[in-house]
Design a protein around this nucleic acid. Sequence first.
DNA 1: TCATTCAGTTGCAATTTGCTACCAATCAGA
DNA 2: TCTGATTGGTAGCAAATTGCAACTGAATGA
Lengths: 150, 150
Amino acid sequence: MTYDIAASIAWTDPSCPVARTTDLVGDRWSLLVIRDAMDGARSFTDFQRRTGIARNILTDRLRKLTAYGIIAQVDAQSGKRKLYELTDAGKDLFPVIVTLRQWGERHAFAAGEDHSVLVGDDYARVPELVPMSADGTPLTSENTRVRRAR
Amino acid sequence: MTYDIAASIAWTDPSCPVARTTDLVGDRWSLLVIRDAMDGARSFTDFQRRTGIARNILTDRLRKLTAYGIIAQVDAQSGKRKLYELTDAGKDLFPVIVTLRQWGERHAFAAGEDHSVLVGDDYARVPELVPMSADGTPLTSENTRVRRAR
DNA sequence: TCATTCAGTTGCAATTTGCTACCAATCAGA
DNA sequence: TCTGATTGGTAGCAAATTGCAACTGAATGA
């Protein structure tokens, strides 16, 4: 089973960048694979153990994410085991993972429940990501809107 | 603000806020329903037309998102049609939608391809959301890491 | 009143997912 | 170098999820 990226994607909503992104990574497992890649996972077994995903589905997701240019196989000299790592486009999903994490911290835990935390090199927690206009006004769904493509 | 949804959900990875969030909204359609709610969709038919989702699946997603406290049916006096709108927790997904949109704009369109754009009340585009440490250093997957829960 | 839209429901087919078993290639240790 | 464990998958099948088309009963609108 192989994937030809151009041929295999029928965009849900071709003019919407949100929909294109969810078409690429918005399934049950891809974002968790990417989360683990950001946290240092590199081998098939790393990903399988950390996510708990079924092995055939992991095979499929790694191929798709590779076809989409989000991860790549590194050090694939023949006769060596393959490793995966994030491409620049994959690393650029960091803000997505951060906002998912921060929403989860705010809304998906009961008071007192423990969860993992994202910290910088100085061990300080990553501050909350808040959309702002150029002049510093906080932006929300209520003071923004989508201008449709021509 | 927390919800007692823990009883009804078998979390993929209970201590990870990213995984909890994807358990709640990380399927093929929920994020698009939320996107459309942020863009003014309120009725069943609004959502169905904008997303193109199958009607039985939309029924299911609206129920789940309601159960999760992300949308709510706004007080329709009995004998009035129901409308849905985002709760505060739902509105708080705005940064997630914004980062998905911005990644899509950067990586899911060929040069010259047209897409919709998110603007503020002044019609200026929403600036890119970049994780920063308290001292203003840009944060990436390479200078942050996950500190696991006790 | 009567047609039309709305908000679903139902039944079924197609697709996707999750086991479990299996396999060849690679690696680690004696 | 032999040997056993681990890795990186496949294959086959069952279960769950999704999509499609037809149907329904209420709400609306002219």
